[in-house]
Amino acid sequence: MSGHHISSAKFLWGIGIALFFLTFVTVAVTWIQIPEPWNIVVAIGIAVVKALLVVLFFMNLYWDSKFNSLLFIFSLIFFGLMIGITLLDTLFRNDPTPLF
């Protein structure tokens, strides 16, 4: 529960450079035309890694109270519920009855 973690300047720059590098990678992979579903997976995957770096080390969640992490995770779960359940409708509009 140390709310006052002080990162070294070197460490912060390291994270920053990693983020710059990943941004470059995510643009570079579009040049090599990955086939259909995988290009989205790669793009989102890189974005998730970048977001995690920011959340854990810039926002200090790695050293912070566990409850704050819990809050963050909960927001993602509820976003997942919102999109997941909405897709239950929008993806299956044309089926007259469910498959089972």
């Binding site: 793009a43 974005a47 970048k50 977001a51 959340v55 810039f58």
Partner: peptide, 14 residues
């Protein structure tokens, strides 16, 4: 500010 950054991190590839 970091949150604003994170949102852009997703908006850019999407």
């Amino acid at each position: 500010w970091h949150l604003v950054d994170i949102i852009w991190i997703f908006l850019f590839p999407l």
